[in-house]
Design a binder for these strands. Structure first.
Lengths: 336, 336
DNA sequence: TATGTCAGTGTTAGCGCTAACATAATGGCT
DNA sequence: AGCCATTATGTTAGCGCTAACACTGACATA
């Protein structure tokens, strides 16, 4: 009485219906049902409609796990970011997911939390799911991670930097040059006592190096470098630790805005243009917030979503240019 | 000459080694290799070490796709958010991923972009991968989505609100009460011309309703409601469209900060306390930025990461309380 | 000695699906 | 009439792994 043929649509089975169950009920073979899903043009319209009706009746949801095993295509992409709670990386993930999802790819997300051991673990976990590509922010921190990725023989896209010896593809910008650009601007503005505040992850460090090298090349004192917690509240009191400084490059906009809050408390912030600021401040990231505060924040603008979309494209097309420099832009507003 | 036994570790095969290849090379059966991975205590130490050495030599990466099919456990959780580029949702994803990743679960991320058709598509795509649970921000927008989730017979956690008829579990707060709390505070402060600005998604609308109902219950004029784009730049000019208003509740902190930028341009912002502000502004989300700007932003604080961690816990333990109200907190600073 | 227990390992079957190769039926062409 | 291309559908085998059970030998127990 409770054979497949008498199963009611209103009371779904405890166990998810399979493709074979659909096939049996529609009076066709399993492969025909499979074709309705994958190559509907190759199925006669009447057959197709009948099968689609049965699918609806049974509430059939295809099992992509089985499909992936049989076809050796998982239609998934692994994404590894330091943290998703940093809006610039979130923009990148949004950009790539907007590109990949319409094409039927799922995003498997993992966070390293700036921890190289965790990074390696997450990389292994991602690869176990046999994604068709891996997109990561930055380069692998360890040789093990690097080897894992090379041996996987799938497209690998490193983003947010331009490594000298990439594993495969790259979509990013030159963090060193960004540091140079900021230093050049501040020096030209007549600033003499420069400092860099922010994290010490590899990308921030590249910015620092560009910044420092350019300052030194101009015969000025070596800039100070203050390594801060990822939490921007430390930047609010950073000013007290940088006496005499007249210009600051912050590794990201959050730190820049925090630093400005400290300047305001110290009476060192004007609502006027950059030239009136006792201490110039430049950020990086071009957060929307930077345009909303007063004085408006000068910053290095980087298009996180474009990096994401480009990375997604690079995973799909295996040929062509594998190194895309998306550049950056020094956006000058009132803070410096 | 090129049998499995003579395969070199230095030159990995083009095709990923399988568990059987490891077994053959180690002179054991496949199941023993499987046990090394899953239940190492049940394998003799010498055997285990030998197998582990072979795994390293071959660069073996387990295939979880096949494992999932065989064991009917995917060790993955589907997560659906409106957008990941909104820091409050990113905090939630970070929180749940921090809880799930150490337990061996992968996060499959999908974005609806506040589009109910896309939401249903992504829900179907997620379910095709047979996740062991689904965590979503908000409730399904359509009956189809709801049915899909109910039929999946896996734990479903709705977050960021407290639906009256949840599908399964819930981790969130009462958006209506948040609106009431803000209205109560502003009315008590003597504000008379109130307005609400922000999006019109279901959660923002609940906040608006609570806000409006409380204002009306106090005999004041019905507050105005200005529906803005997600992009906060519209909020900068919102003030011009709200003449005479003396207090504003913004659906999120970004809009609040944008609105304050508009007030500053209009000369209606003071650096002093709330009582000195010609127009009070309250946000929602408690962005770090709100503490850094001047005047500091008053806001409804919601712990996005706690919502994420709680949601993750709810997916793992099927029994117990299935409805967790994480509450909110009205944090009063200088803006209102 | 017979029996049981347990650690360690193996055999078999199958998860749900798809690639690759049949097969059957139809109609157009020479 | 005979042949071929084309469309629609089916059969077979297997993807890489694990659940469930089966087996073996060493040792303990009665």
């Amino acid at each position: 009485m409770s054979s497949d043929l008498t199963q009611s649509a209103a009371a779904p089975a405890d166990v998810a219906p399979t493709l074979s169950a659909v096939a049996k009920r529609a009076g066709v073979s399993a492969i025909t049902v499979s074709r309705v899903l994958r190559t509907p043009d190759r199925v006669a319209p009447e057959t197709r409609e009948r099968i689609e009706r049965v699918m609806r009746e049974l509430g059939y949801v295809p099992n992509l796990v089985a499909g992936a095993l049989a076809s050796a295509r998982t239609n998934s992409v692994g994404v590894l970011v330091p943290t998703i709670a940093n809006s610039i990386f979130a923009d990148t993930v949004q950009g790539l997911s907007d590109t990949l999802e319409p094409l039927g790819f799922s995003v498997i997300l993992a966070q390293s939390r700036y921890d190289s051991a965790r990074e390696d673990r997450m990389l292994a976990a991602l690869l176990s799911r046999r994604p068709e590509a891996i997109i990561m922010v930055g380069s692998p921190a360890t040789d093990d991670g690097s080897r894992l990725l090379r041996n996987a023989r799938i497209p690998i896209v490193e983003t947010w930097e331009l490594p000298l010896t990439p594993i495969d593809a790259v979509a990013g910008f030159d963090n060193y040059k960004a540091g140079v650009a900021v230093a050049k601007h501040l020096v030209a503005q007549g600033r003499r006592q420069l400092a860099f505040i922010g994290g010490d992850d590899p990308r921030a460090t590249r910015r620092w190096l560009g910044f420092k090298d350019h300052v030194l090349a101009n015969g000025l004192d070596e800039p100070r470098r203050l390594i801060l917690d990822r939490n921007a509240s430390g930047s609010v009191v950073a000013h007290a630790r940088l006496p005499g400084v007249d210009a600051v490059f912050a590794a990201n906009d959050a730190h820049a805005i925090g630093f400005m809050a400290g300047l305001r408390n110290a009476g060192l912030l004007r609502d006027g243009p950059a030239s009136s600021q006792p201490v110039a401040v430049i950020g990086l990231g071009d957060l929307e917030m930077g345009r909303l505060i007063s004085p408006t924040l000068s910053t290095i603008s980087v298009h996180g979503d474009a990096i994401g979309r480009t990375a997604a494209t690079l995973t799909l097309e295996r040929g062509g240019e594998r190194r895309v420099d998306l550049g950056f832009e020094l956006v000058l507003r009132d803070s410096g």
